[in-house]
Protein backbone atom coordinates (compact mmCIF):
# COMPACT_ATOMS: atom_id res chain seq x y z
CA UNK A 1 0.00 0.00 0.00
CA UNK A 2 1.67 3.16 -1.13
CA UNK A 3 -1.08 5.70 -1.57
CA UNK A 4 -3.27 7.57 0.88
CA UNK A 5 -6.99 6.87 0.46
CA UNK A 6 -9.25 9.91 0.32
CA UNK A 7 -12.43 9.35 2.28
CA UNK A 8 -15.69 11.26 2.65
CA UNK A 9 -18.97 10.63 4.47
CA UNK A 10 -19.96 8.16 1.74
CA UNK A 11 -17.16 5.63 2.23
CA UNK A 12 -15.73 6.44 5.66
CA UNK A 13 -17.50 3.83 7.83
CA UNK A 14 -17.08 1.12 5.21
CA UNK A 15 -13.32 1.69 4.97
CA UNK A 16 -12.55 1.68 8.70
CA UNK A 17 -14.89 -1.25 9.51
CA UNK A 18 -12.25 -3.98 9.25
CA UNK A 19 -8.57 -4.12 9.97
CA UNK A 20 -6.31 -1.29 11.09
CA UNK A 21 -6.84 2.12 9.49
CA UNK A 22 -4.99 5.36 10.18
CA UNK A 23 -7.03 8.44 9.30
CA UNK A 24 -5.69 12.00 9.04
CA UNK A 25 -8.45 14.60 9.52
CA UNK A 26 -7.47 17.84 7.83
CA UNK A 27 -8.70 20.92 5.94
CA UNK A 28 -7.09 23.16 3.34
CA UNK A 29 -7.32 26.28 5.54
CA UNK A 30 -5.28 24.71 8.34
CA UNK A 31 -1.55 25.41 8.14
CA UNK A 32 -0.40 22.68 10.56
CA UNK A 33 -2.42 20.19 8.47
CA UNK A 34 -0.11 20.99 5.55
CA UNK A 35 2.73 19.64 7.69
CA UNK A 36 0.83 16.54 8.78
CA UNK A 37 -0.03 15.55 5.18
CA UNK A 38 3.51 14.65 4.02
CA UNK A 39 4.17 12.79 7.29
CA UNK A 40 1.12 10.60 6.71
CA UNK A 41 2.22 10.04 3.11
CA UNK A 42 5.56 8.88 4.49
CA UNK A 43 3.77 6.41 6.74
CA UNK A 44 1.79 5.11 3.75
CA UNK A 45 5.02 4.37 1.91
CA UNK A 46 6.47 2.37 4.78
CA UNK A 47 3.50 0.64 6.35
CA UNK A 48 3.10 -2.24 3.91
CA UNK A 49 0.03 -4.38 4.63
CA UNK A 50 -0.12 -3.53 8.34
CA UNK A 51 -2.69 -0.76 7.93
CA UNK A 52 -4.75 1.26 5.50
CA UNK A 53 -3.76 4.93 5.46
CA UNK A 54 -6.45 7.49 4.73
CA UNK A 55 -7.20 11.18 4.93
CA UNK A 56 -10.48 12.98 5.43
CA UNK A 57 -11.14 16.58 4.49
CA UNK A 58 -13.41 17.59 7.39
CA UNK A 59 -15.33 19.86 5.03
CA UNK A 60 -16.39 16.87 2.97
CA UNK A 61 -17.01 14.54 5.88
CA UNK A 62 -18.68 16.73 8.47
CA UNK A 63 -20.79 13.86 9.74
CA UNK A 64 -17.82 11.61 10.46
CA UNK A 65 -15.90 14.46 12.08
CA UNK A 66 -18.89 15.38 14.19
CA UNK A 67 -19.63 11.83 15.35
CA UNK A 68 -16.02 11.37 16.38
CA UNK A 69 -16.08 14.62 18.34
CA UNK A 70 -13.28 16.17 16.37
CA UNK A 71 -12.78 19.77 17.47
CA UNK A 72 -9.26 20.39 16.24
CA UNK A 73 -7.18 19.59 13.19
CA UNK A 74 -4.92 17.99 12.35
CA UNK A 75 -6.28 15.04 14.32
CA UNK A 76 -5.05 11.56 13.42
CA UNK A 77 -7.09 8.60 14.63
CA UNK A 78 -6.07 4.96 14.47
CA UNK A 79 -9.03 2.62 14.07
CA UNK A 80 -9.10 -1.12 14.63
CA UNK A 81 -12.15 -2.91 13.26
CA UNK A 82 -14.11 0.33 13.27
CA UNK A 83 -13.20 1.42 16.80
CA UNK A 84 -10.81 4.28 17.60
CA UNK A 85 -7.84 2.88 19.54
CA UNK A 86 -5.52 5.91 19.53
CA UNK A 87 -5.95 9.58 18.81
CA UNK A 88 -3.32 12.25 18.15
CA UNK A 89 -4.10 15.97 18.16
CA UNK A 90 -1.73 18.42 16.50
CA UNK A 91 1.13 17.60 14.15
CA UNK A 92 2.33 14.09 14.98
CA UNK A 93 5.60 12.63 13.76
CA UNK A 94 6.01 9.46 11.73
CA UNK A 95 7.66 7.52 14.55
CA UNK A 96 4.67 7.90 16.89
CA UNK A 97 2.22 6.94 14.14
CA UNK A 98 4.25 3.88 13.10
CA UNK A 99 4.54 2.57 16.64
CA UNK A 100 0.80 3.06 17.20
CA UNK A 101 0.16 0.97 14.07
CA UNK A 102 2.55 -1.72 15.33
CA UNK A 103 0.80 -1.80 18.71
CA UNK A 104 -2.58 -2.23 17.06
CA UNK A 105 -1.59 -5.40 15.20
Amino acid sequence: MASVLELDDGNFSETIKTGVTLVDFWAPWCAPCMMQGPIVEGVAKKVGSKAKIAKVNVDEAQQAANELGIRAIPTVILFKDGKPVQQFVGVTQEKALMSAIDEAQ
Binding site: A27, W29, C30, A31, P32, C33, V58, D59, A65, G69, I70, R71, A72, I73, T75, Q87, V89, G90
Partner: peptide, 17 residues
Protein backbone atom coordinates in the same frame (compact mmCIF):
# COMPACT_ATOMS: atom_id res chain seq x y z
CA UNK B 1 -9.50 18.64 26.64
CA UNK B 2 -6.87 19.72 24.11
CA UNK B 3 -8.39 18.93 20.72
CA UNK B 4 -11.71 18.26 22.44
CA UNK B 5 -12.80 21.86 22.57
CA UNK B 6 -9.56 23.46 23.72
CA UNK B 7 -7.58 24.85 20.79
CA UNK B 8 -4.50 26.92 20.14
CA UNK B 9 -5.42 27.73 16.54
CA UNK B 10 -8.56 29.71 15.76
CA UNK B 11 -8.07 29.61 11.98
CA UNK B 12 -7.66 25.80 12.08
CA UNK B 13 -10.50 24.92 14.39
CA UNK B 14 -12.96 27.81 14.30
CA UNK B 15 -15.24 26.08 11.79
CA UNK B 16 -16.01 23.31 14.29
CA UNK B 17 -17.80 25.86 16.46
Amino acid sequence: FYGKGVSGCATCDGAFF
